[in-house]
Design a protein around this nucleic acid. Structure first.
Lengths: 336, 336
DNA sequence: TTGTATGCGTTATCAC
DNA sequence: GTGATAACGCATACAA
């Protein structure tokens, strides 16, 4: 196919060893030959075959990125962060969307390992795949995870502290004078959704507000469910005055439901959500939400993974806990 | 690192050739040994090294996907289509975000070729890179492009006919009784933006409506500019009654601008946009826009590319033209 | 039915 | 300064 090191050697009338030396900027080549080969590289358009390089070095400079679904607005931000930093450090990314499907997650691992990626980034895995992870750990295979689990893992993780984040959101509503606070959950099979629920409940408890079962409705992180569940909430006799919605996407649906039923935000009902995706500031009124540093998350993931790749010894398992921060816009009303 | 074909051979007490045969389901192995090796594969957890495989087969089953920015909501949909179909056919994807930056685009090519990808998908390149493409074409390197250029290229393309699409959008406004029609353009350096402008102008001409320079304002495909440019439009004495906005994202900004200035959609001003990203139906009122089949676009791209990869001979250059279709929601008012 | 030998493009070891 | 040569893991032409 392309021009190889061998072609260069023939053309320059030297051995491939010499060529390899100048390509890798190693000493032991006269300035003259070095120059000659450099010129040839340009003229002949040589591009190193990193596949062959990977075979001998046992390193491909490839990283596997396993995510649930790139169409979820959370992930492009994160992925871009990973990619930018990874490229900066000389690595490329192979993506794998799993839809949080166990079988796909398993396949993703096999495939990526087969492609000899130097490490893999796992985000929001639906199961712990403990066995696989243990096996990888034994052979010192670099992995980082992003999750909302505070428990120590055998691999470094970036943790989004969803419990505290949900707590903050709820607390904000309370401080704004709300007492009747509802919650639209995420897909409850996900740990993140369960953590939000815990944070919400903890906060109610700490502020001695009764937990009303009818104000807790189940969404699944998709707009559709935000729409439906908000309608559910609004149909009730005794409505909440504020709702904590598990993500911005569902808030979009909720906005629509509220408008359709003739209510207005924040006068009739206040909304706080989670994530702060890019379009949320363009809702009317602007969505008050918990900002999660998605791009930065990506940067950190790349750093953590590549650090592992470089330190074969793998001394520290340093977890990073990422805090979400409140972004006040116009969707929460101060009561009384 | 992992267990290799050699390990299997040693364990099974056969040659690596035999092992290779059963791994690739080739004939010429007794059922007994075949079975024995198959068992060993499971027990020892063998995972083929596709890097080594790629070296000898001269095929990596890797595809390069070059896009401007995965954070633009258009691309996750498309990328997911590519990935799903590619995986189905046994290929994985390396992503490369270029931000439409020439230097990055050039680097992307070098990197991807160096990774020995079997082909590359180019979407919305900012320049023609004719020289590179010609060189690749000479060595029969598989490439597909997605663009809005109807001109024949040396490589197969999926073409989004933006001129006709903008024409349709404008025509729809006219048929709804509008005569005073504005346009917020995309970043005018992009061909797509220019094509929208052409379609818009063509339509005005065909319906004998005068083109008013002050109703043509320049955006850049980002919400921010939709917001600003819509304000610009609304500040005018003689306002348009309807505006064709070059993409949904800018329409989000425009909605906000309109609300802030105390106008309502569609009573005071009608809006039609382009793309139909997922959240657009949740705007209030729902955004009327031109739907572009982004996921399907991805599927087609993967098919076209892999077809090329398989037919080394590369008989046909079949372009595919994708039409956008109108999605009527609530942002355009029928006049009179 | 099975095995030997060679090569893919590159780097590393060792010799000259 | 330079060059043979082996090796990485795998597939395959050719022998046996």
């Amino acid at each position: 196919m392309g021009v190889t090191i061998k072609d260069l050697a023939r053309e320059a009338e030297v051995s491939i060893t010499t060529v390899s030396r100048v390509l890798n900027n190693k000493p032991g080549v006269s300035a003259a030959t070095r120059e000659k080969i450099r010129r040839l590289v340009k003229i002949m358009g040589y591009n190193p075959n990193s596949i062959a390089r990977g075979l001998v070095l046992n390193q491909t400079f490839l990283i596997g990125l396993i995510i649930p679904d790139i169409r979820n607005p959370f992930f492009p931000e994160m992925a871009r962060g990973v990619e930018d930093r990874a490229r900066e450090l000389g690595y490329s990314l192979i993506y794998y969307n799993t839809d949080k499907n166990r079988e796909e997650e398993r396949k993703a691992f096999d495939l990526l390992l087969s492609k000899q990626v130097d490490g893999v980034i796992l985000s929001f895995f639906s199961w712990s795949i403990k066995k696989t992870l243990l096996k990888l750990n034994k052979i010192q295979y670099p992995v980082v995870r992003v999750d909302s689990n505070l428990k120590k893992s055998i691999y470094p993780s970036v943790i989004i502290d969803s419990i505290s984040s949900a707590y903050q959101a709820t607390e904000y509503l309370i401080k704004m004078g709300h007492q009747k606070i509802g919650h639209i959950t995420g897909r409850i099979t996900s740990r993140t959704a369960r953590h939000y629920l815990i944070g919400y409940k903890n906060c109610l408890r700490d502020y001695q507000l009764a937990f009303h079962k009818q104000w807790l409705v189940r969404g699944d992180f998709e707009h559709q469910s935000g729409y439906q569940q908000m309608k559910e909430l609004l149909r009730q006799q005794d409505k909440p005055t504020a709702v904590f919605i598990a993500n911005d996407i569902m808030a979009f649906g909720a906005y629509k439901a509220i408008a359709e039923m003739g209510y207005t935000i924040p006068d009739d009902i206040s909304i706080i959500a989670h994530d702060d995706i890019e379009l949320s500031s363009y809702l009317i009124p602007g969505l008050t939400t918990m900002y999660t540093p998605k791009y930065r998350l990506g940067i950190i993931l790349a750093d953590l993974l590549i650090k592992q790749i470089k330190n074969k010894n793998r001394a520290e398992i340093d977890d990073v806990v990422l805090k979400s921060t409140l972004v006040e816009r116009g969707s929460v009303k101060r009561l009384r």
